[in-house]
Amino acid sequence: MSEFKALSTETVSPQYQDLDTWDTPHLVQVLVEDQLGAVEAVRRAIGPIAQAADRASQRLRQGGRLIYAGAGTSGRLGFLDSAELPPTFSWPSERSLVCIAGGERAIRQAVEGAEDDLEAGRRDFLAHRPTAQDVVIALAASGTTPYPQGVLLAAGEVGALRIGIANNPDTPVLRLSEVAIALETGPEVISGSTRLKAGTAQKIALNALSSAIMVRLGKVYGNLMVDLQATNTKLLARAVRLTIAATGASEEAAKATLEASGWQVKTAIVMLRKGLNPEAAREVLSRVDGDVRQALR
């Protein structure tokens, strides 16, 4: 128990000791305003987040996979980030994996005690048959959770890149990582409830990290999400707007070109800008690893 006494995320703040007596507007105001601490914590970690993005993109260009690891709230945040990459950036789902303590059941409900099983973390990670090209993103608010430590230990054995995100500095999850991202958010309004600003800070950091990785991998042209999967009415309309923004084409021309390209925005942009048919546009893109800016040069 002594290890938890030193964790700022577990500290009981006297500032909020009468929380349950406050009127609801004041209670909500405090809960909302305390979230600003999450933004500041991530701002202080911009350097290591950028380093993680650069190092991860290098591995992923060689065919590696992103493997998120965590327990409880941290594990679910990793799952969410992983799940959003395929539709947003056409990142292959088989290259976006998750190790969560307690397995998939833990995404919907707590699996008590699962986070304390270091060997389960090691076992779950090794089940993915990892290689040195893979990238592990391990998350733990406390930084002491055994499950992600097990994942990191196994990742080190195979030479995978280890990125650790925790809300307490100099903790095992960070020490086991090659790139340590400390998000020092301090005590929570509700003591120990790290689903509050600690979780918010992790979500912001994950948003920034995975988005930066995808930009570095050519999944974005300018600030346009050109590698999305247009799988519903909203996204079909977005694909048209993106194509128009990138080419200056009319709505009719953009729609027609997208239909001819199988609703692949990158292909449609190259077709319109270079006057190519779908096959030729895809060939140009394949030679530059799908980077639209390079394809247009």
Rank of each mutant, 00 (worst) to 15 (best):
K203Y: 06
K203I: 06
I204Q: 08
I204P: 07
A205R: 08
L206E: 02
N207D: 09
N207W: 00
L209Y: 01
L209N: 03
L209C: 07
S211F: 00
S211V: 00
S211Y: 00
A212W: 00
A212F: 00
I213T: 02
I213A: 05
I213G: 03
I213Y: 01
I213N: 04
M214A: 10
V215Y: 00
R216W: 02
R216F: 02
L217K: 13
G218A: 13
G218I: 05
K219D: 02
K219A: 10
K219W: 01
K219T: 02
V220K: 06
Y221H: 09
G222Q: 15
L224S: 04
L224G: 03
M225K: 01
M225P: 07
M225G: 01
V226D: 02
V226E: 06
V226F: 01
D227P: 12
D227V: 05
D227A: 13
L228P: 10
T231G: 14
T231Q: 14
N232Q: 05
N232A: 06
T233V: 10
T233C: 08
T233N: 13
T233H: 12
L235A: 09
L236D: 14
A237Y: 03
A237V: 06
R238Q: 15
R238S: 14
R238G: 13
A239M: 08
A239K: 06
R241M: 11
R241P: 12
L242H: 06
T243G: 11
T243N: 10
A245T: 05
A245P: 10
A246W: 00
A246N: 02
A246S: 04
T247D: 09
G248Q: 11
A249F: 03
A249I: 04
A249L: 04
S250Y: 04
S250I: 04
S250C: 08
E251M: 09
E251N: 11
E251P: 07
E252I: 03
E252N: 07
E252G: 05
A253C: 01
A254R: 01
K255Q: 08
K255G: 04
K255I: 05
A256C: 09
A256K: 11
A256G: 12
A256Y: 06
A256Q: 14
A256S: 15
A256D: 12
T257C: 12
T257P: 07
L258Y: 07
L258D: 12
L258Q: 12
E259V: 12
A260H: 07
S261Q: 10
S261F: 03
S261C: 10
G262N: 12
W263F: 15
Q264Y: 15
Q264K: 15
K266Y: 00
K266H: 01
T267W: 11
T267D: 15
A268E: 08
I269T: 09
I269Y: 04
I269E: 08
I269G: 09
M271W: 05
L272H: 08
L272F: 06
L272S: 10
R273S: 12
R273A: 13
K274R: 11
K274P: 02
K274M: 04
L276S: 03
L276E: 04
L276V: 03
N277D: 15
N277H: 10
P278N: 07
E279A: 14
E279D: 13
A280D: 12
A281Y: 02
R282D: 13
R282S: 12
E283P: 05
